[in-house]
Amino acid sequence: MSKNSTNERVTAGMLVIGDEILSGRTKDQNIGTVADFCADLNIDLCEVRVIADEIPEIVDAVNALRTKFTYLFTTGGIGPTHDDITADGIAAAFGVPLNVDDRAIKMMQDRFTDYPMNEGRLRMARIPEGGELIPNTVSGAPGIKMDNVYVMAGVPKIMQGMFEAIAPTLKTGIEVFSASCDSQVGESSLSEPLAALQISYPTVKIGSYPQMGSDHYMTQIVLRSSDKSSLDEATQKVREIIAAATQSKLKI
């Protein structure tokens, strides 16, 4: 176990900020990346919201999610343009001033020599009072940590670098085990017995995922649990359910 491991459940919410995501002009890639990071750290990503570049919306969402989960990760809106207002929203959510921070300026100038601080770059150096800086090895402009809120860039490569920087500092939760079972029968043939099985194994999450577009129809059943013994028992039950459904299909 890592030095930050805990025997308690660790949860996270994610806030994707940007009109360009909602309009469809930009296709989000960060949700999947954050989900992968969280899975590797045994952090349960429980909720994702996508909101517009509006300060009241940012304030409401940040204050709702940061009190609901162990961590809140935000992406987008910390660039150099007028509509990059995430820092403003974070400062408002915490009720603190937002000022140009000398640490952020140094971080950017250390990344690039001869880096004049024009108006756009100074916008990226605005940090809510009390905020810690998240390193940005790509462009230098830092992310922000406020309490349990981690404010990161919307550009996927930059966001990934920022998450790699914060990952060693995060608490990791209880290890979750998983198993999967494939079947050649449709979901409807499995739904009733799987529902009963879920009631019998409440500590095991059982998901059904149909796979289409191939020559053969397939339903994949995925099971996840921190209780390895219960997971193994439930997985065997799923195999039996699939076998019974397959046999019934062959008789038709």
Rank of each mutant, 00 (worst) to 15 (best):
M1G: 14
S2V: 02
T6V: 11
E8D: 14
A12F: 09
G13E: 04
M14H: 08
G18S: 02
I21F: 08
S23H: 12
R25N: 15
K27V: 14
N30T: 00
I31S: 12
T33L: 15
D36V: 01
A39Y: 11
N42Q: 08
I43F: 08
I55L: 09
A61V: 00
N63V: 01
R66G: 02
R66F: 01
F69E: 03
F69P: 02
I78G: 03
G79N: 04
T81Q: 05
H82W: 03
D83L: 03
A91Y: 07
A92W: 13
A92N: 10
A93I: 04
A93L: 08
F94V: 04
V100Q: 13
Q109S: 01
D114F: 07
Y115I: 00
M117T: 06
R121S: 05
R121Q: 05
R123D: 11
R123N: 12
P135I: 04
V149Y: 10
Y150H: 13
M152P: 02
G154Q: 03
I158W: 09
Q160D: 15
G161R: 09
M162R: 08
E164K: 14
A165K: 11
L170K: 04
S178E: 14
S180Q: 15
D182I: 00
S183M: 11
S183A: 12
S189E: 14
A195L: 10
Y201H: 14
T203S: 15
T203M: 10
K205E: 10
I206M: 14
G207V: 00
P210W: 10
Q211A: 06
M212S: 11
G213M: 11
D215L: 14
M218R: 14
V222W: 06
R224Y: 02
S229G: 00
T235C: 09
Q236D: 15
K237N: 14
R239N: 13
Q247W: 08
K249C: 00
L250S: 15
